[in-house]
């Protein structure tokens, strides 16, 4: 009886052995790819996409010119702001050094809204860093490999951003819709908002630096359930992004080590979630 079952197994092995081993190998390889968030594939993709990067010199020049213009205006504002803050006694200013990164790809499946940037760990990028573009907020880095990083766009439905209306300071949070328009849900029952108002990240948001431009209100639906809503047109050209700016969420001194960032990660998410229920 026992000899028979061994014989049967040997026959089976001779017939299907190679296939079984190959199948197990394929599954293990797939598991590894998943575990590393597709690092191998994205690295390869980056190497292949490099020659096709959109005219970096020219792009950078254009972006740089625009940035220099804005920086000059901002410097003036910041100086005023600084002196005002000193008068009020507020502390903490941001000293951020943005990193330029080319957008080399889009999400690998259309139910999610990601972009792939051609800069990664080696260029100093980390999970949780903020991605902006000329125009405003784009998203947040959700995973990094050596030379690429994946950005969860604010247009993704899973993305939640605490935002505020520039004019009236009405608070709410922004929910992506998978398009260039997003929905802002207000915390107040009767928010002070009208079409054309600017929307920026709120000071209560832990995941994004406060005051980053997001977009402008296109239409308002005050009788929406469960909370009043506004449709917001995102100001960054998320649909055809070629270059983006990446910067740490906090001053560099605070995020110098990985551990502090990761330790902060979880409570931040929770705080943001708890925040939206208020």
């Amino acid at each position: 009886m026992k000899g028979n079952s061994i014989y049967v197994f040997r026959r089976w092995w001779e017939r299907y052995g190679v296939q079984t081993v190959l199948a197990v190998l394929a599954l293990v390889a797939a598991g590894l790819v998943r575990h590393t968030n597709g690092a191998v594939l994205f690295e390869m993709y980056q190497a292949l996409a490099r020659p096709f990067e959109a005219n970096p010199a020219q792009q950078e020049q254009l972006v740089n010119a625009r940035i220099r213009e804005l920086e000059q205006r901002l410097a003036e504002q910041e100086r005023q702001n600084q002196s005002l803050k000193q008068l009020v006694g507020a502390v903490g200013d941001r000293d951020r050094q943005p990193i330029f990164a080319p957008a080399i790809g889009r999400s690998a499946h259309h139910w999610w809204n990601h972009i792939i940037l051609g800069r990664g760990r080696r260029d100093g990028l980390k999970k949780g860093y903020i991605v902006t573009a000329p125009g405003g907020l784009v998203g947040r880095i959700s995973s990094v490999t050596d030379r690429t990083s994946r950005v969860l766009l604010i247009s993704d439905p899973t993305s939640r951003v605490g935002v505020t209306i520039g004019r009236s300071r009405s608070m709410g949070f922004l929910r992506g819709q998978g398009t260039e328009r997003a929905v802002m849900e207000f915390f107040d029952k009767v928010p002070d908002v009208k079409a054309g108002d600017t929307v920026s990240t709120s000071s209560l948001s832990q995941l994004f630096p406060p005051g980053t431009p997001v977009g402008s209100v296109e239409s308002v639906k005050l009788n929406a359930s469960p909370a009043p809503e506004a449709t917001v047109k995102l100001s960054a050209p998320i649909g055809n992004l070629e270059w983006a700016l990446v910067e740490p969420n906090r001053p560099i001194s605070e995020t110098s080590s990985d551990t502090t960032l990761d330790a902060e990660e979880q409570p931040q998410e929770e705080r943001e979630d708890g925040f939206e229920e208020n």
């Binding site: 394929a26 599954l27 390889a29 797939a30 598991g31 790819v33 998943r34 575990h35 590393t36 968030n37 597709g38 594939l41 994205f42 999400s107 690998a108 499946h109 999610w112 990601h114």
Partner: peptide, 12 residues
């Protein structure tokens, strides 16, 4: 299954 797992790694 195999390809699905790989794609999980690449998007979500």
């Amino acid at each position: 299954l195999t390809i699905g797992i790989v794609q999980d790694g690449m998007s979500s």
